[in-house]
Design a binder for these strands. Structure first.
Length: 304
DNA sequence: AACACATCCTGACTGC
DNA sequence: TGCAGTCAGGATGTGT
């Protein structure tokens, strides 16, 4: 599913419903969803149940919920098909639910967080928080609060993830220089979460269409000015998609209430195979690429 | 370090 | 209806 805008929509939903809630129980329906918690499901349960959720933080496509004393967090990644649904206990069972976390909110209400994931590429884990590499904030969470002791911490398992284009501390100039040192095609570079995070197949294709760049254009052959334009475009696309609650193509992406996002109505390239390019009317093409697909306009986006 | 690939999985959908 | 084939918003470990 989910790239930055979808994960941010989930983050905001979780923050609203379970900040300051306490974990009262755990039901594991498929332990494979906890495979990234290396010390086993017993340990996961022991560290989670009884903890209070202090905050909900995101960097790129990683989410984490600082717990208890603020030195550990529940780390979630949605992979290709993960959903985090917030339900009341009476709400009918959700299909493909892998893990249920039971909460009591500050107001005393019982809620469940259901981790639904068709393909099981997503995961939940408890991880220790560590200082960020650049000393800045770990990630984004609403309401800046310098009193949050976990402000400048990040889960060890996400500490290699670069800042995303919506991050206040995103260093555009530095990222441009790094891109200029890459000999891969520009799309591969855009998808490299160690260089900049949050962009996946949809928003890569959209950004490249808007910038009129072919996905296989060698990154080191693109001017600094053009790369700056591309990063600005990515920033705008991600922001616009966040404002629409993300992109829902099928039943895979839903917010915490099980609702779809609306950004699919504003896509120019991704999923638009054979439809006319909005600029030049040439049919958009889908080309097999790196075990997935690239959507582009063969006229507006030339390989060289 | 950087790069290209294979791999982890299930279910929905298409066409015969 | 059944069955094979195709497709899917991602990260990671591997060998070079």
């Amino acid at each position: 599913m989910p790239e930055l805008p979808e994960v941010e929509t989930v983050r905001a939903g979780l923050a609203k419903s379970i900040t300051n809630a306490t974990v009262t129980g755990l039901r594991i329906h498929d332990p494979r969803s906890l495979k990234r918690h290396l010390s086993g499901v017993q340990d996961f349960q022991k560290k989670l149940v009884g903890s209070k959720v202090l905050d909900v933080v995101r960097r790129g496509k990683f989410l984490w919920l600082p717990l208890g004393g603020g030195t550990t967090a529940l780390v979630g990644h949605l992979g290709m098909s993960g959903q985090m649904l917030v339900r009341t206990p009476e709400f009918p069972e959700d299909k493909l639910n892998r893990v249920t976390i039971e909460f009591e909110t500050k107001a005393g209400e019982a809620l469940e967080l259901r981790f639904v994931d068709q393909r099981i590429f997503g995961s939940l884990a408890i991880d220790d928080l560590t200082q960020t590499r650049d000393g800045g904030a770990g990630g984004f969470s609403a309401g800046k609060n310098r009193d949050k002791p976990w402000e400048n911490l990040i889960p060890i398992s996400a500490s290699h993830i670069a800042r995303d284009p919506l991050d206040e501390a995103f260093d555009k100039k530095a990222v441009i220089e790094k891109i200029r040192n890459r000999k891969s095609g520009i799309k591969r570079v855009l998808l490299d979460q160690n260089l900049l995070s949050g962009i996946g197949n949809i928003y890569a294709d959209e950004s490249l269409w808007l910038a009129k760049l072919h996905f296989d254009r060698l990154a080191d052959g693109i001017s600094r000015a053009k790369l700056g334009e591309l990063l600005d475009i990515s920033n705008q696309v991600l922001k616009a998609a966040v404002s629409q609650g993300g992109t829902s193509f099928d039943q895979q992406y839903k917010n915490v209430n099980g609702e779809s996002g609306f950004f699919s109505q504003q896509l120019y390239a991704y999923g638009q195979t054979d439809k006319p390019c909005a600029r030049c009317q040439s049919p958009i093409r889908r080309q097999a690429w790196a075990n997935r697909g690239s959507h582009f306009c063969p006229k507006c986006q030339r390989p060289s």
